[in-house]
Computed example of a mutant assay.
Amino acid sequence: MASIFTRIINREIPAHIVAEDEKHIAFLDINPLVMGHTLVVPKKEVDYIFDLDDQTLTGLNIFAKKVALAIGKAIPCNRVAVSVIGLEVPHTHIHLIPMNSMGDVNFSRPKLTPSKEGLAETAEKIRKQF
């Protein structure tokens, strides 16, 4: 069965996409730690990041860098944190999180529940930075 990320890639379920190319996609986390929290995903469905072939892993990181730079321009923050964690979706993904303090990247704290309009507005701010 396809992962939820593959279903987003295939446009079977909606997402607030901020960037995409032929091999990668980036979209907002719908329950972010902070606004602008973005997931960067290879279109090739592979569960564990270190099971990716070298070319795919390299391409994913270069794509993530471009997205992180756009997030940093769009969302006021000191840095954009990078995290590869999680077991809940069996599809490699990188979290890019605008941060002003270490608490902004604490995955054990309650997540935000932004409105669809808030997510759409944030996605548009990031897209405009490309």
Rank of each mutant, 00 (worst) to 15 (best):
A2V: 10
S3E: 02
F5K: 04
F5E: 02
R7N: 10
E12P: 05
A15L: 02
D21G: 12
K23Y: 08
K23I: 00
F27I: 08
N31T: 00
P32R: 02
L33E: 00
T38P: 06
L39E: 00
L39D: 01
P42G: 10
P42K: 08
P42Y: 10
K43W: 10
D51C: 03
D53G: 09
T56C: 08
L57N: 04
T58N: 12
G59V: 09
N61V: 09
A64I: 08
K66R: 15
I71L: 08
G72Y: 05
A74H: 08
A74P: 09
A74N: 10
P76T: 07
N78H: 11
R79F: 06
S83H: 07
I85L: 15
E88H: 14
V89D: 04
V89Y: 07
H91M: 13
H91I: 12
H91R: 12
T92V: 15
H95W: 11
I97P: 05
I97F: 11
M99F: 09
G103L: 10
S108N: 14
R109V: 13
P110A: 15
K111D: 00
S115C: 04
S115I: 00
E117R: 04
G118V: 00
E121F: 08
A123P: 11
K128Y: 04
Q129V: 11
F130Y: 15
F130K: 13
